[in-house]
């Protein structure tokens, strides 16, 4: 997979929620694009990640 521009091997079949938790992202504090489309937070448990997926995981930071 490609996660925020970095190559990432998908260890085991996982849902998006499992992946976020395993990697230490706070699912309540991020938004996720999977292959260019936003995944609504209620779907994190249902979305199964696949090898070749491209994820953008973003959060708020300080800014003007």
């Amino acid at each position: 997979m490609l996660v925020n521009g970095q190559e990432k091997k998908l260890q085991t079949p996982a849902t998006l929620m499992e992946f976020l938790r395993a990697e230490g992202y706070g699912p309540e504090r991020v938004a996720v694009e999977r292959n260019g489309a936003i995944v609504p937070r209620p779907d994190y448990d249902a979305v199964r990640l696949a090898e070749g997926d491209e994820l953008e995981i973003v959060c708020f930071v300080g800014g003007g």
Binding site: N4, G5, E23, G24, Y25, R29, V30, A31, E56, I57, V58, C59, F60, V61, G62, G63, G64
Partner: peptide
């Protein structure tokens, strides 16, 4: 205001 950026692991 806030900005949106890639989240860190």
């Amino acid at each position: 205001t806030l900005a949106v950026r890639r989240a860190n692991v």
